[in-house]
């Protein structure tokens, strides 16, 4: 009988320090881990603990997995102390995926901020792989300040693709830092897009407050609540609806989510907390 708590050991073969608080671990698991973009895994450090993270690599690669992690609590503090060659454990994948089939022939909008760009990078790379199937991809990416921006080199790469539009913003530019793109909240970048909101999908991930106001703005802009896909962040201990910490009303963020449409959860309580 398969044990649901079993972990697959993996070796960290590279670490990219994206920003002072965010790093990407590049991991080679002992057994390839297949997942669908949007799903998450539980990453553990032996003797320390584990936490839920969404891979930031394309789901077309399973031999290696990139996971972008912000230093924000007990486990992530230790994750930020790992070195190349260290062993981590992975179990999963868990939860719902981005419904790519619904995005075919659409003008896709991606709205993300901070470390919320991690699952969106996975989505974006997966979309790029089959770019012929989609009309266009518009990526709005925000960060607090220029030094907090992640995937710096990747964005300039991605901008070269046809059918891809990328707009980036930072909230502030402190003295001594430079920035040649927009300075505003990422939700303000919506003013730049030229997508008909009626039938097209938008995928949102970021800090709760950004997701909340982002969703409100998208509704105002004319997006349909059934086409607004949110990657919800809750305390997902186990990953399969057992520990019950991530309950959103009658839903589990880990099992029924983490990808929800706004229509699914709009009537539940404290969804943005």
């Amino acid at each position: 009988m398969h044990n649901a708590y079993e972990v697959i050991p993996g070796t960290i073969y590279n670490i990219i320090q994206e920003s002072p608080l965010i790093r990407t671990l590049q991991i080679r698991p002992e057994i390839p881990i297949e997942f669908q973009t949007g799903q998450f895994v539980e990453l553990s450090l032996p003797g320390i603990g584990e936490g839920p993270f969404t891979p930031s690599s394309s789901h077309y690669t399973s031999e290696v997995m990139d996971i972008t992690i912000m230093k924000t609590g007990f486990v992530t503090e230790y994750i930020h102390k790992t070195s190349i060659g260290d062993i981590v454990g992975i179990r999963g994948p868990y939860g719902s995926k981005y419904p790519l089939e619904k995005f075919h022939n659409k003008d896709i909008l991606i709205l993300g901020g901070g470390c919320g760009l991690a699952p969106l990078r996975s989505l974006f790379l997966t979309l790029l792989h089959d770019i012929d199937q989609y009309n266009s991809i518009t990526f709005l990416a925000g960060a607090k300040s220029p030094k907090d921006c992640i995937y710096k080199e990747l964005f300039s790469e991605w901008k070269k693709y046809k059918k891809v539009n990328i707009y980036r913003s930072v909230d502030i530019v402190p003295e001594g830092e430079s920035w040649d793109e927009e300075i505003c909240l990422v939700t303000k970048l919506l003013q730049k897009i030229k997508i008909d909101p009626k039938e097209n999908p938008v995928i949102v991930c970021g800090p709760p407050v950004m997701m909340k106001f982002g969703t409100m703005d998208l509704l105002k802009y004319g997006y349909n609540e059934n086409n607004i896909y949110l990657s919800m962040e809750k305390k997902m201990y186990c990953g399969f609806g057992q520990c019950r910490h991530c309950v959103i009303g009658g839903y589990y963020a880990c099992k029924d989510g983490p990808v929800f449409t706004y229509a699914q959860i709009k009537n539940e309580e404290a969804i943005w907390e």
Partner: peptide
């Protein structure tokens, strides 16, 4: 039946 998981691993064991 709400649970928490602890990692009681040693070195490379999980």
């Amino acid at each position: 039946y709400c649970l928490i998981l602890n990692d009681e691993s040693v070195e490379k064991e999980f």
